[in-house]
Design a protein around this nucleic acid. Structure first.
Lengths: 119, 119
DNA sequence: TGCTATGCATAGAAAGGCGATACATCCACG
DNA sequence: CGTGGATGTATCGCCTTTCTATGCATAGCA
């Protein structure tokens, strides 16, 4: 699991999803939760206990940077993507796509409903 | 992460890949390793320390069943999918597809190479 | 006054994946 | 005949990710 694909691809795609959401424009934790819920049509609810450590991890890796909201006095912590984060996102997104195609080549036949050719 | 999608979808898709490989026809551990390497064009190498516990887990869940090769006297342990495994595979494959579409809707714009319209 | 939504955070447990290690057989090459 | 590499299954302990539970604070509404 160590050659071309990062091992994270085998784990979840959460890092990637969160990073791409921040890449769309500045976000804070709670807005990311809502965005994930929205794009998944309320199928995925990203727990706070998952999200915040994840954000700290991404920031520690230099992929995003944060800034406390000055306006309301430390209510929201805004995140934006860094240049390194953009590079990482593009690369990881391409890898994810390749990986997904590989998975799909295996499971596709079983996911599809039987074709109504004979039915 | 607990409503319609199983949480495993956030983790790897390994269970699903292995289950679908076994669904293609009887397999033993080593042949599954080779098959994964092949379909991923040698991009993914499934470590033995990952595969065998995974197979034991699937068997414990009743999704596959095993039988030692009688011919050569306990050299290979053959696995085949059970009826419950087939049902599980179909459902999980459909869920994975939905989840992948959700991920793709987020990361697709960042994975794509810039269109050579102006280049 | 309470209940709900917003908003961030950590601690501890559970689980998956990986590297290392172990052991046995088979075959090709020298 | 010996040695190394491929085949073949298995476990252990570590590391990382994810989840549950908990904590705290503010805002708005009934």
């Amino acid at each position: 699991m160590q050659e071309s694909f990062e091992r994270e691809l085998l784990r979840g795609s959460l890092d990637l999803m969160v990073l791409s959401i921040i890449a769309e424009g500045p976000q804070y934790g709670y807005s990311i939760q809502k965005r994930v819920a929205h794009v998944s049509r309320e199928q995925v609810s990203l727990a706070a206990g998952t999200l915040y450590p994840l954000l700290h991890r991404l920031e520690g890796d230099g992929l995003i940077k944060s800034r406390w909201d000055e306006e309301t006095g430390r209510r929201r912590k805004w995140y934006e993507i860094t240049a390194a984060g953009k590079r990482s996102l593009k690369q990881k997104a391409q890898h994810w796509q390749q990986y997904a195609e590989c998975v799909w080549s295996l499971i596709g036949p079983f996911a599809a409903n039987p074709k109504p050719l004979t039915g």
